[in-house]
Nucleic acid binder design. Structure first.
Lengths: 228, 228
DNA sequence: AGGGTATGACCTTCCGGTAATTTACCTCTG
DNA sequence: CAGAGGTAAATTACCGGAAGGTCATACCCT
């Protein structure tokens, strides 16, 4: 998988199969710097957690994917929950930044027209998720046990995104004279669920680029809103 | 827990030798009749599988919920996968019947106006799920390993519902002159994902009745479609 | 006695987590 | 410039517990 090495300027000579006598085969010889390994592990963990959910994901499987062994994950991230939290923060931060950028891109003058916001947000999300589409479902992991620390943490990180969604969806209802707070909450949930559904479709169509997804979703949103 | 014999918690006849005589065909055994037990187990399993996903759900937990022990589940359903498949068929059958009923209720004359179909379908789904809201996520379990028998089975059962969704969404796009089959597939997925998102919100608001959900969703769908 | 209902004890496998150890590199001395 | 020593990077081997699954057995009614 990862044959890449050569972190330091002095790359170990790849000349021959020089192996030490009496030693375990290839123990401690990788020498990948910690920062790079952590990034690799994080990427593998995001994919694994996103695909199977926290409970079903296995540390050994993540380690195998990276090409290392379990104890390394524990020395770097402490525990399974620690690794999960790291994934959570990583992906939440990237998504929040991207969505914030998509919702207020025009500091001079009024913000973008309300009806243009959803496609912009989708474009931003797809751009962030292009190389890690499963990441969305790390944040929106339905299998976390309610009441657990992990559930609270995921909920807290979702709240940032949900807040942005709420500020966008509230206008829609206000324009209708609807002030029911439960309607607003449900519509917010509906929006994030819609994004999740679209990401789910994207995962099952890997050949689609982020740009293609953005264009397709613009068509679909328009079609839904058109009278028929 | 139940160390000694101890009648099961739900045994309905603690008052003397009052046993149902010849009441049911083949009845008369000491414990709960098999059909009733199977129904209890199925209900508990649907909730457990729906809440945690197939992999994270535990047989022992389901058994504990019913008030029996693990071997009984295996006697009646063979294996964890067998129980899961039984849940799948149970819920899929009920949902398909209900949705079919909602989509062609008027055999004489044309079908219901296209714009009235989604609320009707939602009403039917909410009615089926009223007492088992988690059941939706047994069918739409994202954590099933792709390529496994379970994944294929769930996909096959979903296909029935997805087919109904497709027949409803295809009209929307045709009305726009859009004939892209991928757009149609994505819109179908978007619709089922929307239903899932609404069910997810419903689960987090247990006090809401199916009728209230139906009314709320009608408001929300109208709000989305209105110009703003 | 016989048959449907139900259980306790047990087996194997996998998973999260830890301890001890090995390898490779860098640097500081003499 | 050689070797001593420190340190970062990784490994093998192992443990306790939980989960899927099985077997022989007990209960209770007809």
């Amino acid at each position: 998988m990862n044959t890449a090495r050569g972190s330091s300027p002095a790359t170990p000579s790849p000349s021959g199969p020089r192996r030490t006598p009496t030693a375990a085969p290839g123990a401690g010889t990788k020498g990948v710097p910690r920062a790079r390994r952590e990034a690799q592990i994080l990427a593998a963990a995001v994919e694994e957690f996103g695909r199977h959910g926290h409970a079903s994901a296995s540390m050994a499987s993540i380690a195998r994917r990276v090409g290392v062994t379990k104890p390394l994950l524990y020395t770097y991230f402490g525990s399974k929950d620690g690794l999960y939290l790291a994934c959570l923060e990583h992906i939440a931060h990237r998504l929040v930044s991207a969505i914030e950028g998509a919702m207020e891109p025009d500091p001079h003058g009024a913000g973008p027209a309300a009806s243009r916001v959803p496609p912009r947000v989708l474009a931003a999300v797809f751009d962030v998720l292009e190389e890690q589409r499963e990441a969305w479902f790390v944040l929106y992991d339905r299998t976390l046990k309610p009441g657990s620390d992990l559930h609270r943490a995921a909920h807290a990180h979702r709240a940032a995104i949900d807040g942005l969604a709420a500020s966008g969806t509230a206008d829609v209802l206000r324009g209708q004279g609807n002030q029911d707070p439960l309607d607003a909450d449900a519509l917010k949930h509906l929006w994030t669920g819609t994004v999740g559904a679209l990401v789910g479709w994207w995962i099952s169509h890997p050949e689609q680029s982020a740009a293609e997804m953005t264009a397709r979703c613009a068509r679909l949103l328009a079609a839904i809103r058109a009278p028929h």
